[in-house]
Structures are given as structure tokens and as C-alpha cells.
Lab assay of single mutants.
Amino acid sequence: DTLHVTQDGKHIELRGLSEEEIKLVEELLRRGRKVEEALKIIEELRK
């Protein structure tokens, strides 16, 4: 699936995420994380 995010005035499209990963990214962003940080966390969880 694809998640569309706008952060720091930039539109970012995150592709290839599972539904659970999207929920996790959304939660991390709500808690003030940056998109880059959220993606690093997803990458770690995929290992």
C-alpha cells in the first residue's frame, strides 16, 4: 500500500508498506517522529 505524508512542507509518498506498517508509521508521526526515523524503524522491524 501507499501512504501519503506531508512533512516540513514536503509531500512524501511511501510505497510498498503493509497495512500494519502504515499504521505504525502513522502512529510514529503522530508522536512527533520524522518520516526518515519512522522508515528506519520499519526497516529494522523487517529484518
Rank of each mutant, 00 (worst) to 15 (best):
D1G: 15
D1K: 04
D1A: 02
D1M: 02
D1V: 01
D1P: 15
D1I: 03
D1C: 04
D1R: 02
D1N: 10
D1L: 07
T2F: 11
T2G: 14
T2E: 08
T2M: 06
T2H: 14
T2Q: 10
T2A: 06
T2P: 08
T2R: 07
T2N: 09
L3W: 00
L3H: 12
L3N: 07
L3P: 09
L3Q: 07
L3D: 05
L3M: 09
L3R: 06
L3C: 14
L3K: 07
L3V: 15
L3A: 09
L3S: 05
H4M: 04
H4F: 01
H4G: 06
H4A: 05
H4D: 06
H4C: 08
H4K: 03
H4Y: 00
H4I: 15
H4N: 06
V5D: 05
V5H: 02
V5E: 05
V5T: 07
V5P: 06
V5L: 04
V5G: 06
V5K: 02
V5N: 04
V5I: 08
T6C: 14
T6W: 11
T6Y: 04
T6N: 12
T6F: 07
T6D: 15
T6L: 11
T6Q: 10
Q7H: 05
Q7F: 00
Q7D: 06
Q7G: 05
Q7R: 01
Q7A: 07
Q7T: 07
D8N: 07
D8F: 00
D8W: 00
D8C: 03
D8E: 06
D8H: 03
D8A: 03
D8P: 02
D8K: 01
D8G: 06
D8S: 02
G9T: 03
G9L: 02
G9I: 02
G9V: 02
G9M: 02
G9Y: 00
G9R: 01
K10G: 03
K10A: 08
K10Y: 06
K10I: 15
K10C: 12
K10F: 09
K10L: 13
K10H: 10
K10W: 05
K10S: 06
H11D: 15
H11T: 15
H11L: 14
H11P: 06
H11Y: 09
H11V: 15
H11N: 11
H11F: 11
H11Q: 07
I12P: 05
I12M: 04
I12F: 08
I12V: 10
I12H: 15
I12N: 05
I12L: 09
E13V: 04
E13P: 00
E13T: 02
E13M: 02
E13F: 04
L14Y: 01
L14A: 13
L14M: 06
L14I: 15
L14R: 05
L14E: 11
L14G: 07
L14N: 10
L14V: 15
L14F: 01
L14Q: 06
R15G: 15
R15Q: 15
R15I: 15
R15V: 15
R15D: 13
R15N: 15
R15S: 15
R15L: 14
R15T: 15
G16D: 14
G16V: 03
G16R: 01
G16N: 10
G16S: 04
G16A: 01
G16P: 05
G16Y: 08
G16M: 01
G16E: 14
G16T: 05
G16F: 05
L17K: 00
L17Y: 13
L17D: 00
L17P: 01
L17I: 04
L17F: 11
L17C: 01
L17T: 01
S18Y: 08
S18A: 10
S18I: 05
S18M: 09
S18D: 13
S18Q: 09
S18R: 05
S18T: 14
S18V: 07
E19F: 11
E19K: 11
E19S: 12
E19G: 11
E19W: 10
E19D: 14
E19C: 12
E20W: 08
E20G: 11
E20K: 12
E20M: 12
E20P: 10
E20S: 12
E20N: 14
E20T: 13
E20Q: 10
E21V: 03
E21A: 03
E21K: 01
E21R: 00
E21L: 05
E21T: 03
E21P: 00
E21W: 03
E21F: 03
E21N: 02
I22S: 10
I22F: 07
I22E: 05
I22K: 12
I22P: 00
I22D: 02
I22C: 07
I22M: 10
I22A: 12
I22H: 05
I22L: 06
K23T: 13
K23C: 09
K23L: 14
K23Y: 12
K23I: 13
K23E: 13
K23V: 13
K23W: 12
L24G: 04
L24P: 00
L24C: 12
L24M: 10
L24Y: 10
L24H: 10
L24F: 08
L24K: 08
L24V: 11
V25W: 03
V25N: 01
V25F: 07
V25L: 06
V25M: 06
V25R: 00
V25T: 05
V25Y: 04
V25S: 01
E26V: 15
E26G: 08
E26F: 13
E26A: 08
E26H: 12
E26C: 10
E26I: 15
E26T: 14
E26L: 15
E27R: 05
E27L: 10
E27I: 08
E27S: 08
E27N: 11
E27W: 05
E27D: 14
E27C: 05
E27A: 09
E27F: 06
L28S: 11
L28D: 04
L28K: 02
L28N: 07
L28R: 02
L28Y: 10
L28M: 13
L28W: 09
L28V: 12
L28Q: 09
L28E: 10
L28T: 09
L28A: 10
L29D: 01
L29K: 01
L29Q: 03
L29H: 06
L29N: 03
L29G: 02
L29M: 08
L29V: 07
R30S: 13
R30D: 11
R30N: 12
R30I: 13
R30H: 12
R30Q: 13
R31Y: 10
R31D: 12
R31G: 14
R31L: 12
R31A: 14
R31E: 15
G32M: 04
G32Y: 02
G32S: 04
G32P: 01
G32N: 08
G32A: 04
G32V: 01
G32T: 02
G32R: 02
R33E: 13
R33P: 03
R33F: 11
R33K: 14
R33D: 14
R33A: 14
R33N: 14
K34L: 15
K34W: 12
K34E: 08
K34D: 08
K34I: 07
K34F: 09
K34Y: 13
K34N: 10
V35A: 09
V35S: 02
V35Q: 02
V35M: 03
V35P: 05
V35D: 01
V35N: 01
V35L: 07
V35E: 04
E36S: 11
E36H: 11
E36D: 13
E36Q: 13
E36T: 09
E36C: 13
E36P: 07
E36G: 07
E36V: 12
E36I: 11
E36A: 11
E36K: 08
E36F: 08
E36N: 08
E37Y: 07
E37D: 10
E37K: 04
E37Q: 07
E37G: 06
E37F: 06
E37A: 11
E37N: 07
E37S: 06
E37L: 07
E37V: 08
A38V: 15
A38S: 07
A38I: 15
A38K: 00
A38C: 09
A38H: 00
A38W: 03
A38G: 04
A38L: 15
A38F: 08
A38R: 00
A38Y: 04
A38E: 00
L39N: 03
L39I: 15
L39Q: 06
L39A: 08
L39T: 06
L39P: 00
L39H: 04
L39W: 09
L39F: 06
K40N: 13
K40M: 14
K40Y: 10
K40C: 12
K40T: 14
K40I: 14
K40G: 12
K40R: 14
K40H: 13
I41V: 10
I41D: 08
I41C: 05
I41L: 12
I41W: 10
I41N: 06
I41E: 11
I41F: 11
I41T: 10
I41R: 11
I41K: 10
I42M: 08
I42N: 00
I42E: 00
I42F: 03
I42G: 00
I42P: 00
I42C: 02
I42A: 03
I42R: 00
I42D: 00
I42T: 02
I42W: 01
I42H: 00
I42Y: 01
I42V: 12
E43G: 04
E43S: 05
E43I: 04
E43K: 04
E43N: 08
E43L: 07
E43Y: 05
E43D: 12
E44V: 07
E44D: 14
E44K: 06
E44A: 12
E44L: 09
E44W: 05
E44R: 08
E44N: 07
E44T: 09
E44M: 08
E44I: 09
E44Y: 05
E44H: 07
E44Q: 10
L45K: 11
L45A: 13
L45N: 14
L45S: 08
L45C: 02
L45P: 01
L45W: 08
L45F: 08
L45M: 12
R46W: 03
R46S: 07
R46Q: 09
R46G: 06
R46M: 07
R46I: 06
R46P: 02
R46F: 03
R46D: 03
K47Y: 07
K47L: 13
K47A: 13
K47S: 14
K47M: 13
K47W: 07
K47F: 09
